[in-house]
């Protein structure tokens, strides 16, 4: 990987966590599918980048940040994982297998920033005591964002330039070995983790039938995901109709 590419990728990784994309970086730019596309543009192959990013994103389908903790840093997995995979011209399964540990490393960064940024809240307190609104406002972003910018730029640039080569050599040395086979199997299994984690958040006793219907639609009829979503919209509409009838009946009964 070229230095300039590493620097741009590091900047994109920072930007995905910065306030400047309508404040929605976490929801949008940190998703590995977007990361893969952007890294692909930088590395000169947006289509392959998108395919790799989409593959990595399968594990993070169920990614949720609840109460300020994240299970894994999907942005680091997406940006650096795609960059590594494109640099070593490897399969998507291998990309997936390296993205997982990278994402876990990222949680260390997260805990660090969540701890250090508390200091800046006290700086804001000091400005508040003086009635300095401008100071309070600036303390909400300037110190923390400066810290994150510097830290992420340095970390990811070095990571991309030096570590990608080492990882690439190790992985390429394993091609064709039984272990390499195993990594491919892991790549196939990992999307189950992402789906299961999302189900943990949304699956209820009453919605089990819809899980099975969605599964069967694809298993037997090979319907695309967009198609399943359209069936899902219809099912949701039926549910809403039935509910409004029930509500109507309840009000009528009350009268």
């Amino acid at each position: 990987m070229e230095w300039w590419q590493a620097i741009v990728i590091a900047f994109l990784y920072y930007f995905a966590d910065a306030p400047f994309w309508f404040g929605d970086g976490y929801y949008v730019l940190q998703r590995p599918i977007v990361a893969g596309f952007l890294v692909g543009l930088v590395m000169g192959d947006p289509v392959q980048g998108t395919i790799i990013g989409a593959t990595i994103n399968l594990i993070f389908l169920g990614h949720m940040s609840v109460g300020g903790s994240i299970p894994s840093d999907m942005a680091l997995a997406g940006y650096v994982g795609t960059a590594f995979a494109l640099a070593m011209h490897t399969t998507t399964e291998v990309a997936l297998a390296i993205a997982v540990p990278i994402g876990l490393i990222g949680t260390v960064v997260w805990v660090g920033r969540m701890t250090i940024s508390a200091v800046f809240a006290h700086w804001a307190d000091a400005f508040a005591k003086k009635g300095n609104t401008r100071g309070v406002m600036l303390m909400n972003w300037v110190p923390a964002q400066t810290m994150l910018f510097l830290f992420k730029m340095i970390l990811v640039t070095i990571f991309c330039v030096y570590v990608s080569e080492a990882v690439g050599n190790v992985i390429n040395g394993m091609v064709g070995s039984p272990i390499f086979n195993g990594i491919g199997v892991v790549g196939g299994m990992l999307p189950a983790v992402g789906i299961a984690l999302n189900l943990r958040a949304i699956l209820k006793k009453e919605t089990w039938p819809f899980l099975i219907i969605g599964f069967l639609l694809v298993a037997y009829f090979k319907i695309s995901i967009v198609g399943v979503a359209l069936f899902g919209v219809a099912a949701a509409m039926i549910y809403m109709l039935m509910n409004s009838k029930k509500e109507g009946a309840a009000t009528n009964g009350a009268q």
Binding site: L58, A192, G214, L217, V218, I223, I225, G232
Partner: peptide, 17 residues
């Protein structure tokens, strides 16, 4: 309901085992 149904489809489509 909509979300759960799509998750069911994703299992078929993308989990390889």
């Amino acid at each position: 309901i909509l979300g759960t149904m799509v998750m069911g489809g994703l299992i078929s489509q993308y989990v390889g085992f």
